[in-house]
Amino acid sequence: MTKKVRDIMKILRQFRNIIREGLVGMWRNLGMTTASVISITFVLLMFGFVLLMVLNVEQVVFESGAKLQKIVVFFENTTPQDKLAEVEKKFKAMDGVDKIEFTSKEEALNEMKARLKGDDYILEGLPENPLPVSFTLHLKSLNDGEEVAREAKAIPGVYKVQYYNELVNNMLRVYRGVRYGGTATIGILLLIAIVLIHNTIRITLQNRRREIQIMRYVGANNYYIRGPFLIEGLLFGLLAGVLSCGILYLFYQYSFNRFNPQLLDILGIGLFIPDQRLAMNLFVILTSLGMGIGYLGSIISVTRHLDV
């Protein structure tokens, strides 16, 4: 066996021992281990809830915005046809308008009958078609909406401009509130989790102080002494990540089955589908974040309280 192979085998044995010592340390301080895992799990659950909420609110906002990215301009029934032709040219010349659709009185009546479905008989008794002609202006961007609506209202013969800018703005405010409020909450919980892990590792260090001194005397290197405590932190985060991922995915799957049909009926927009891809993304994100939190808490404690 060559020296290089012996060195590799030595490193592997040390790594195995470090993992074993980390597991032993977790078992010796089972109460603090449980508290640390629960605290990280709670942080990760909050992070996951906020993440899923932001993603779904974002989907509703931007898909709704895409559907509302238009302005409907209604004209009085007395507006002559040649006037409508001039107005169409004005609309095409507007900077914020992408394309235009004209709806005649007859087309508007047919659309009304289609929406009423089996109840369209109520329109049969009307002496004449009361519905107005309209232009639907599809916007290049939601930011152009207010200016285009203002210009449309100033055109003679216009009696109504239908635009949902306020609704879109309110939805965007909700989205920003969820994102910023969730971020602040996660930040606070993150600090609490790091402090708790720091205290757990500190107690472990105190309990094993004599053992650590013996390891120093026999020539153990810093990597070997510090390793078990860092492994503990990583394992805290890994366990919390797996636990939080399972809880979050089951909760989201239940919520999806419970509320998605109603959202589709009301808004025509559904939630993210809880498929295998979402489960895998949650697992990667939550376990990575959990292990990062655990490692950070451990490295802070080892650096402050372990003089090696």
Rank of each mutant, 00 (worst) to 15 (best):
A279V: 11
L289G: 01
F283K: 07
R277Y: 12
L289I: 14
I300M: 14
I269V: 15
I293F: 05
T287H: 06
L271P: 05
L289F: 14
L289A: 12
G268W: 09
L286V: 06
F272P: 01
L296V: 07
S298I: 04
I299S: 12
L267I: 07
G292F: 05
I285N: 05
S298R: 04
M280P: 03
G294T: 00
R277C: 01
N281L: 12
L278G: 06
I269G: 01
L282T: 09
R277G: 13
I269T: 06
A279H: 12
L282V: 09
G268Y: 10
G270T: 09
L271C: 05
F283R: 06
Q276Y: 13
P274E: 09
I299V: 15
M280Y: 11
L282M: 15
G292R: 00
D275G: 14
I285Y: 10
G268I: 12
G268Q: 13
G268S: 11
L282G: 10
A279R: 14
G297C: 03
G294W: 02
V284W: 04
T287M: 13
G270W: 08
L271V: 07
M291R: 04
P274A: 11
G270M: 07
R277N: 12
S301I: 05
I300R: 08
G294N: 04
Y295F: 15
Y295V: 00
G292C: 03
G297Q: 04
L286Y: 01
Y295K: 02
Q276K: 14
I300K: 07
M291Y: 02
G290S: 08
Q276V: 11
I273D: 13
G297M: 03
T287Q: 02
L267W: 08
I273A: 13
R277T: 14
P274H: 09
L289T: 08
D275N: 15
G294F: 01
R277F: 08
G294D: 00
A279N: 10
G270S: 12
G294L: 03
G270F: 07
I293Q: 01
I285C: 06
L296S: 02
V284L: 15
S288D: 01
N281H: 13
L289E: 00
L267R: 06
S301D: 01
L289P: 02
L286S: 09
L282N: 09
L296E: 00
G292I: 01
I299N: 04
P274V: 09
F283M: 14
L296Y: 06
G292N: 01
G290R: 04
S298H: 07
M280A: 15
G268P: 13
I300W: 11
D275Q: 10
M291W: 01
I285K: 10
I299H: 04
I269M: 05
Y295R: 00
A279D: 09
T287L: 10
L278C: 07
F272L: 15
L296T: 08
L271R: 10
Y295E: 05
M280V: 13
L282K: 12
G270P: 09
G292M: 05
P274C: 10
D275Y: 11
P274N: 10
G292Q: 00
I300L: 15
L271F: 14
L282A: 08
L267T: 06
P274K: 12
A279Y: 15
L286D: 09
I300H: 05
